[in-house]
Structure formats: C-alpha cells, structure tokens
C-alpha cells in the first residue's frame, strides 16, 4: 500500500451518542488491514480523546485520516474557541470542562496528555477565536 487510504469524518458537537464513531470506524479499518493490536489501541485512544475534545469544547469538527503501510496520520480540525495556553492544556489534570461534562466521566484533564502519550508525533496549532488543528502520527509496530 504505497498510497494512503483516506478517510474523513464529521464529528458532531455536544453529541455524546455519536461520539467515538469515527474512532471506532478507524479501529475497525485498521483491524481489517491487519495492523497490530498494540498499534490499534494507541490509535483508538488518541483519536477518541481528540474526538471527545471536539465534541465537548469545539462544537464538533472534522477528522481527516490517512492510513499508510507503516503509519497513520490523523488530523483533527475544529472552528472552536481555540486554546489560549497550549502548555497548560497539556498538563495532566488541567481541565476546563464543566461539572455536567465531569458527570459524564470526562474532564479529568487527561485528554491531550493521553493524545500526546499514545502518538509518535503530536502537534497542536491553535488560535483563540478561530480554532484548533491537532496532527497525530502513530507508527505501526
């Protein structure tokens, strides 16, 4: 597979019924392609966290996924409020989630740290008032 398998997903904002759908689709695709369970787990965790962040904080967004023979590239784009202090947002335990979001089991401040931890390359570009783009790469093992 020299060319990428390209997938795109719309992620709906504030919708916890459909949340995780894109991650689940990608997980199934990787399984079908014979990617190792260790790599699939990393991708599933990182992408689900990203999806949930867009659902909670950004009013939804778009997930653009390219699967190569040896790696996956995931780009998450939103037009949400942006992140004023990325270093702070990457701190384990830091969260801006509301109490109602915490009641759902989110908002532990582990979303972005998990995304960074489970990917081999991780980049956030964000502009307050305009939105955020996260690019993640997982190399298959």
């Amino acid at each position: 597979m020299s060319e990428a398998l390209h997938l795109e997903f719309e992620v709906a904002g504030n919708n916890f019924v459909s949340a995780g759908g894109a991650s689940d689709e990608v997980k199934k695709t990787l399984k079908m392609l014979g990617v190792s369970t260790a790599s699939i787990r990393k991708v599933a965790i990182a992408m689900y966290e990203g999806e949930i962040n867009m659902v909670i904080h950004a009013g939804g967004g778009r997930a653009i996924v390219d699967i190569y023979r040896d790696r996956i590239v995931i780009v998450l784009q939103d037009n949400g409020p942006g992140i004023p202090d990325i270093d702070l947002a990457l701190t384990e335990g830091y969260s801006t989630a509301t109490d109602s979001i915490r009641d759902l089991g989110f908002g532990a401040g582990m979303g972005l740290p998990n995304m960074k931890k489970y990917t081999d390359e991780f980049k956030i570009e964000s502009e307050v008032g305009k939105g955020t783009t996260v690019t993640m790469v997982v190399n298959f093992v």
């Binding site: 995780g20 965790i45 949930i52 089991g105 989110f106 532990a108 401040g109 489970y118």
Partner: peptide
Amino acid sequence: DFLSVVMGKAPESAGWFTIMNNQNVAAV
C-alpha cells in the same frame, strides 16, 4: 470512573470496575 484516566491506564483484557453507567463507558 474518569474515562480518560481509564483509557490511559486500563490494561487490555482487564476487568474494569466502575460506577459510571452512561453510554461512553461502552465506547471506552
């Protein structure tokens, strides 16, 4: 019960003990 913590730390094939009971539990 915090889903992101569980995602980051629960081992594959583990028994997950929780009192969280919404649909996101299934996704995680």
